[in-house]
Design a protein around this nucleic acid. Structure first.
Lengths: 224, 224
DNA sequence: ACGGATCTTGACGCCGTCTTAACGTGCGCG
DNA sequence: CGCGCACGTTAAGACGGCGTCAAGATCCGT
């Protein structure tokens, strides 16, 4: 859902936005008029659409209206016009935000984040599922076979770090400093104790871990 | 859900907004600083909050951050500062839109409509029922076995935050800062006293709580 | 000013969590 | 083959948080 569709008839702005957004981790698709923008949006589900109001073929507000007949994708409008009439029309047509040129790129990025955050919240909670248990980061809750699993604060701390970095190797040093503080980097024993408890509570076979893998001498890795 | 909370320290702007919004069908409540705004928001579910960044007591961005710890109500920020740094901070803290003064009233109204339209899907039932009691957030009333239960202001404050976030774990820190203020984050004792009172008034078995669960070392969770 | 409700504060026993240590196991390396 | 290292497992004691109660202190309406 990090795909963004940028619609503008000015090739310079288009190129600048494409480069900037790409540099910030977005996958960018561009369109230069309203019709192709609508077709693009219909063919591919974007996380957000950046739309210039001054398009050669159809009015930008019309684009929003037609888009809103079947899609709820967040739309951020760009415009050179400062007239509040245009803003009102675009927003009431279904736009989610409105930025007038010239604009700061960091402001645009912040508004993009704000607009996207809302649509994500409306859609789904940050939940991580595995074959044997489910972790709900927002609710701070772990479920296994439909039953809640009771975790102590330390257990949850470790689980959260691992689960937020799936497939990624987390060093013992990282875990120890994050949970206990920088003074405890030598207490690898703590990790062994708590990893054993986590596995006993969450793994189908605590002796043969499938989700909490240990990399000897380095750290641990969470496998969804 | 047409209630709007307007937060501004300038009484003239406050009055002007109140009149204008009221003329357009909104029910308006006003606050003149950050603390009272947060308390207002905790006691009454608003459809949208209009927040000026320049408040006398706490930074507007901080208000948003604290509000976002337990509420998803749409927030529209007003500010005299054109600097994009302020915009970025406010938006990333969780604001939904940002308008710089001076602004057109019709633009503000349009942005209000846009912000509210998005949150419609997320709107919540104002009354929460459990097996043993019923909470009406709008009426500020708790019923048990058909009888009204009398709650003190503090008891209600805690209950409301918990009930507005069903299933979700609320940290002691969140509760203490929202009810007593940021200076009381060490007084976990208060929570124990009031949780005991809430359970005595609402739980079938205060000793074996079924709805107000405590997560040792972290906080509390409301179970409908 | 008075009285009741509400909030603050302290003390106590209980229980869960953390810490720590000891022991067993598997693996690599000399 | 045996030694050492890292890891897994377990258990016991220390520690701190939690629930509970009750006694002041404070707020508020009459």
């Amino acid at each position: 859902m990090n795909d963004v569709l940028v619609v503008d008839d000015d090739p310079h702005i288009l190129k600048a936005l494409k480069i900037t957004l790409h540099a910030h981790g977005y996958t960018v698709v561009t369109a230069h008029d309203g019709e192709s923008a609508l077709q693009c949006a219909a063919r591919h589900p974007f996380g957000v659409i950046v739309l210039d109001l001054g398009l050669p073929d159809i009015d930008g507000t019309t684009v929003i209206t037609r888009l809103r007949q079947w899609s709820r994708v967040p739309v951020l409008v760009l415009s050179a016009r400062h007239g509040s009439d245009d803003k009102v029309k675009a927003l009431d047509a279904g736009a989610d935000d409105y930025v007038t040129k010239p604009f700061g790129l960091d402001e645009l990025l912040a508004r993009l984040r704000a607009v996207q955050r809302r649509s994500i919240q409306a859609d789904e909670a940050p939940v991580v599922r595995t074959a044997s248990f489910t972790v709900d980061l927002a609710m701070r809750r772990v479920t296994r076979n439909g039953k809640d699993v009771r975790l102590t604060p330390t257990e949850w701390g470790i689980l959260e770090i691992l689960v937020r970095n799936p497939e990624k190797l987390i060093t013992q040093h990282q875990l120890l400093t994050e949970i206990w503080g920088a003074a405890y980097t030598k207490e690898a024993n703590y990790l062994r104790v708590y990893m054993a408890q986590l596995r006993r509570k969450l793994e189908p076979e605590p002796g043969n871990p499938r989700h909490f893998m240990t990399e000897a001498g380095i750290g641990y890795r969470f496998q969804p």
